[in-house]
């Protein structure tokens, strides 16, 4: 084999070492061609699954943990309350049972009558209106001759109630079964609203 002359090797190397001159729009041409290339079908998933490094300060993470714990405890308590209120009619929970009877057996019209000739105002209060005298539907009207009456809807079931005369005097219903309800010094009456007949 004949030896390659050294001056030929230098001439080839010199050509290879010469810097490449690119025009100004070369980069743009290349990127435009890259963009025209079809995207990968799972590109979004690939980006989502690519691991990334997130930095957070210890103080903020501690505060966030405490707030999340408080939120979880409050939510758990609220869920417990909601479950207690939504218990079925077979469980001895008054609110749930009353709610169920309101929906199924409904409420019945009950007439409340009190003879109070000197009264200016008579209201019916009881467990069916949270003992709140401000409910207009339980405010009696004077029918004349000292007779006060109101007909109001009462849920089916057992109830305790009384009349409030002139916003101050608590009076049991003389015509209704009495209760030995001496816890607060004023009498109450019992009312059983049945599925068929209001008592």
């Amino acid at each position: 084999m004949r030896a390659i002359p050294e001056r030929w090797v230098e001439r080839v190397a010199g050509e290879l070492r010469r810097p490449v001159q690119l025009d100004d729009g070369f980069d743009d041409k290349v990127m435009s061609e890259v963009r025209r290339l079809p995207r990968h079908r799972f590109g979004a998933w690939a980006r989502a699954l690519r691991p990334r490094t997130i930095t957070i300060s210890p103080l903020l993470s501690a505060i966030a943990a405490v707030l999340l714990l408080a939120l979880a405890l409050s939510a758990g308590h609220a869920i417990g309350m909601v479950r207690a209120l939504r218990t079925g009619p077979d469980r001895p929970d008054g609110a749930a049972e009353r709610a169920a009877t309101n929906q199924t057996s409904g409420r019945r019209d009950v007439q409340f009558v009190l003879v109070a000739p000197t009264a200016r105002k008579v209201q019916v209060v009881g467990d069916f209106n949270d003992w709140d005298a401000s409910h207009a539907e339980y405010r009696a009207e004077h029918r004349g001759g000292g007779v006060w009456s109101v007909t109001a809807k009462v849920p089916v079931g057992h109830h305790r109630y009384a009349f409030v005369v002139d916003d101050s005097l608590w009076v049991a219903d003389p015509a209704a079964p009495r209760l030995l309800d001496d816890d607060f010094g004023t009498p109450n009456s019992a009312l059983v609203v049945g599925g068929e007949v209001a008592q």
Binding site: W131, D132, A133, R160, F184, G185
Partner: peptide
Amino acid sequence: LEGEKKGA
């Protein structure tokens, strides 16, 4: 509630 309304 009854007690509260009766001022107990």
